[in-house]
Amino acid sequence: MRKQWPDTLVVVVTEQQPAAIWNAEQLINKKEVFNAPLEQLQAALPILHGPVGTEQDALNMFSNMQQLLQLHDFSVRKVWLTERFAWRLELSDGLLLQLGRDDTLKRLQRFVDLYPTDATT
């Protein structure tokens, strides 16, 4: 909101498109974290957790993980970036994966490559 001379107020409203829930308290879009009432969400959103300042890193990693996993009919429910910057994720079926700090997407690809083989034995 700003005042325009001489006697007008200009109000700019920007609609937010949430991409995920951040630290169970806020929402995150492709650019920033913002506050909104979570109980009014219409769609189920993924849940991202991480230290302050890592919001965009978490969102980018979630996007990369989701793209890789969707090709194999998996879906990401939650992603954590720990204080030690290690990645962990929960799939929609409840399976929890600890991916560590290094070569995260390679480790996830290894899971995708091996899981169907392990599931049939």
Rank of each mutant, 00 (worst) to 15 (best):
A24M: 00
P116W: 05
P51L: 04
A20V: 07
L27R: 08
W87D: 06
F74I: 00
E83D: 10
D93F: 01
F34M: 10
A36V: 02
T120K: 11
D7C: 03
N23A: 06
T120H: 01
M1Q: 10
R101Q: 15
Q66T: 08
L71G: 14
H72C: 05
V76D: 09
L105R: 11
H72V: 08
W80I: 09
L95V: 12
L95S: 14
I21P: 11
N60I: 05
H72T: 07
Q17F: 05
Q40W: 01
V11K: 13
E32M: 07
Q26Y: 05
M1N: 11
W5K: 06
W5H: 11
Q98S: 13
L59P: 06
E90S: 03
A86I: 00
G53E: 02
V10W: 04
L71N: 11
G53F: 03
D57V: 11
L27Q: 05
P37S: 09
N64T: 04
K106Q: 15
V76I: 10
Q40R: 14
Q16F: 01
Q4V: 12
A86H: 14
V33D: 09
Q109Y: 01
R84C: 00
Q67H: 15
Q70Y: 01
A86V: 00
K3D: 04
R110K: 15
L108C: 15
W22Y: 08
Q56I: 11
M1E: 07
F85E: 10
K31E: 12
N64C: 03
A36M: 01
L96H: 09
A119V: 04
L38S: 09
L114Q: 15
M1G: 15
T14G: 04
A58T: 13
L89H: 03
R88V: 04
E25T: 14
E90T: 07
T82G: 13
A19N: 12
D102Y: 03
L71Q: 15
A24E: 13
L71D: 13
L69N: 13
Q56A: 08
L45E: 06
P51S: 03
G94P: 07
I47S: 12
P18K: 02
N35Y: 03
L41A: 08
P37A: 08
F85G: 01
Q4F: 00
Q56V: 05
T121V: 04
L48G: 06
